[in-house]
Design a protein around this nucleic acid. Structure first.
Lengths: 294, 294
DNA sequence: TCTATCTATATTTATTGAGTATGGGATAAC
DNA sequence: GTTATCCCATACTCAATAAATATAGATAGA
């Protein structure tokens, strides 16, 4: 049994006329009669009573129609949902985000508007470190990630730049460097560095290490932390200096002064990332949505 | 989109291998690849990830599978129910019955056993007069009827004999005829006849009228009634005599005596009737069930 | 009775699903 | 590293079958 049989049957059952139904189906009448006969043979049911001029549905035919409609309805639903899926209006999207580096306001605003525009897309969020997100992307765990770009990213990842920041140095307000507007790399020699846990952020310091070595010294690491505010607290407590992006607001607090580094300072790139060549229509929608800055 | 696409897709999705699925489907692998490609083109969805050796379902593919299974399930149900219908195990049957002439015990026993044997057949019953049942059969209102056969029945009706009774005459116990065992037609001359309402039963009296006329007189009708027990009550009250079948039990009451008529007396045939050539499998089952006396 | 209309049958045509042969790419074995 | 194997895709052919055409038979209406 094929859908053709059911579609033809329903047409005849609704028109109660083979020729009329054939016109509606844009086929000739003989093949329609044939197909209905095939259906009757296959089902073993006499579906129509053709004894009079106007054909009638038999009881078997009426019963069969109920179930046939059921099938065609489920097909219609499949096609409807498939269309929505292929257009990216229906589906699910797993998003990773490093909340330590993304402005909550910015992010929630994006999500709110996207969800409003595409209510049929299920969003799931995971707060992951940037490196973890890259793993998650490659493993298929997440479809898109908001993360800070490490110096080198896998070839299989595409990105869209959200924000580009240059590295500044956070120093205790009373510190000698705090009085300068700009510092050279060589002036950092001998300073105690307070860095984010290398597990999470090693690659972000590669540029810094490189510059320091070019300036003739190895950065002396006083302390690792896995937390931005702890890092800043340590700076304000005078335990050392910390390289940080130019992120505003949150980082401004008493006891910490930011000083600029030379023009060749490393940059922090906050991006949205996704698997290169991922054709998921929902992801396409989302990428497009972000790219357009909607 | 055709069922073939869905069946093939499910096979590949379950085997996660085109060649394996092709074996299962008893087709070669290339046409399977083709059909899946057609499906992907038509849906606009990339359903499989063929990048590695073992293919994988994409998220779109997983989503699509849910709805595709839905469709195939509804088709399976259609086929299951269609098979049951064509075998007469599923459906409905509208039965007419003239409860005035059918033993309730006999009838309810039949229905009980049939319903027990075929629990998926919906039975609906209507208590109709015999003539009304014949109309109902021809109009499609009922599919089978238990009725008393009139002298001539439409050509389009098939019957199965349930009971055959000869006509007797019910006379008041004190009546002159009550003393005889047999009466001739001519002895009925001048008697008052109490008959069932001609609307319902005229044809049952045609034989009687014929015999009386052959005997040289016209039956004198004292009273019409539309009810058997009223008819008998009138006889016992001495208002007249009434022709009745040899139905036992119920009709035996005080004040009424039954006397036999000559051998050529009309007969009452109680039958099950249905539309000649009605191929409804459920009806076939029912007719077969009754014929076999099950 | 004739005509119009509708369905069924017979036959031909066209579409398309399936088969065959083959090539490329990835993994596994040597 | 090289070969062998497995699997899917492509190109082309063949076969099945759905659709078209022509026509006959049946039925209702003029």
């Amino acid at each position: 049994m094929e859908l053709r049989h059911l579609r033809y049957f329903i047409a005849v059952a609704e028109e109660l006329s083979f020729s009329q139904a054939a016109r509606r189906l844009n086929i000739a009448q003989p093949p329609l009669s044939q197909q209905i006969q095939d259906l009757e043979r296959e089902t073993g049911l006499k579906l129509f009573d053709r004894s009079r001029r106007k054909i009638m549905l038999t009881q078997s035919g009426k019963d069969f129609m109920v179930d046939a409609r059921n099938v065609l309805d489920s097909v219609a639903q499949l096609e409807r949902k498939t269309k929505l899926r292929s257009e990216g209006h229906l589906g699910r999207l797993s998003i990773g985000v490093n909340m330590a580096i993304i402005s909550p306001h910015f992010f929630s605003s994006i999500l709110r508007r996207f969800r409003q525009r595409h209510p049929e897309i299920d969003l799931s969020l995971s707060d992951y470190l940037s490196v973890r997100q890259l793993e998650g992307l490659l493993s298929g765990e997440i479809d898109a990630g908001f993360l800070r770009l490490p110096s080198q990213i896998p070839d299989l990842i595409d990105t869209h730049l959200i924000k580009r920041e240059t590295m500044r140095m956070a120093v205790p307000t009373g510190h000698a460097l705090a009085r300068k507007k700009n510092v050279n790399w060589s002036e950092l020699k001998g300073e105690n560095f307070i860095l984010i846990n290398p597990d999470a952020a090693r690659m972000f310091y590669e540029g810094l290490y490189f510059k320091c070595r070019m300036a003739g010294f190895e950065p002396k690491v006083e302390q690792y932390t896995n937390n931005l505010s702890t890092q800043l607290w340590m700076v304000s407590a005078g335990l050392g200096i910390a390289p940080l992006p130019t992120t505003p607001n949150i980082l401004k607090r008493g006891g910490v002064t930011f000083v600029s580094l030379p023009a060749d300072a490393p940059v922090y790139e906050t991006v949205m990332a996704w698997r290169r060549g991922d054709l998921s229509p929902v992801l396409q929608r989302f990428v497009q949505f972000i790219r357009r800055g909607e």
